[in-house]
Computed example of a mutant assay.
Amino acid sequence: MHQLEEFKQYFARTTLYLELNQQYTEYEIFEITQGKFEISEVQAAFEKWAKQSATDHKRAEFAKNLNHLISGNYILVRKTI
């Protein structure tokens, strides 16, 4: 649910939201049925946002892990085969 709230905050600042808000109420824009947004444009925006959010998270984790490795406090250990 936290991810959904983040998306709502992000989406509310877009021009697409402003366009949709002229035709629909906020409730209608963010209405979800069977795990998907009712309005296809909102669903597409959510999927794009979720993918970008996941990519950003992975990049941040990679940088953090790389910093740990470079710091010398951690070592790489080969997996046993």
Rank of each mutant, 00 (worst) to 15 (best):
M1N: 05
H2T: 13
L4C: 02
E5F: 06
E5W: 05
E6W: 08
E6K: 14
E6C: 09
E6M: 11
F7C: 03
F7E: 04
F7R: 01
F7S: 02
K8M: 10
Q9K: 14
Q9I: 10
Y10W: 14
F11L: 05
F11M: 05
F11N: 01
F11R: 02
F11A: 03
R13F: 07
T14P: 02
T15P: 02
T15R: 12
L16T: 14
L16I: 12
Y17V: 05
L18H: 10
L18M: 10
E19Y: 09
E19Q: 13
E19I: 11
L20N: 02
N21V: 04
N21E: 07
N21D: 05
N21F: 09
Q23T: 09
Q23E: 11
Y24H: 04
Y24Q: 01
Y24S: 00
T25S: 05
E26V: 07
E26F: 03
Y27M: 02
Y27C: 01
Y27T: 07
I29P: 00
F30Q: 00
F30I: 01
F30M: 00
F30P: 00
E31S: 03
I32M: 00
T33E: 09
T33K: 11
T33P: 01
T33L: 07
Q34P: 01
Q34K: 12
G35E: 04
G35A: 03
G35R: 02
K36H: 08
K36E: 12
F37M: 01
F37E: 01
E38F: 08
E38N: 09
E38H: 07
E38P: 01
S40W: 11
S40L: 14
E41W: 09
E41F: 12
E41Y: 13
V42D: 00
V42H: 01
V42R: 00
Q43M: 05
Q43R: 07
A44D: 15
A44G: 08
A44E: 15
A44T: 13
A44I: 10
F46S: 01
E47Q: 12
E47C: 03
E47L: 12
W49D: 03
W49M: 03
K51N: 14
Q52T: 13
Q52I: 11
S53T: 15
S53I: 07
S53P: 02
A54D: 14
T55N: 08
T55Q: 14
D56H: 15
D56R: 15
H57I: 13
H57Y: 15
H57K: 15
K58G: 06
K58Y: 14
E61C: 09
E61Y: 09
E61H: 10
F62E: 15
F62T: 14
A63Q: 15
A63F: 13
N65C: 11
L66A: 13
N67C: 07
H68V: 06
H68M: 11
I70Y: 10
I70F: 09
S71R: 02
N73H: 06
N73Y: 05
Y74D: 08
Y74F: 10
I75E: 09
I75W: 04
I75T: 11
L76K: 07
V77F: 03
V77D: 04
V77C: 02
R78E: 10
K79D: 11
T80G: 05
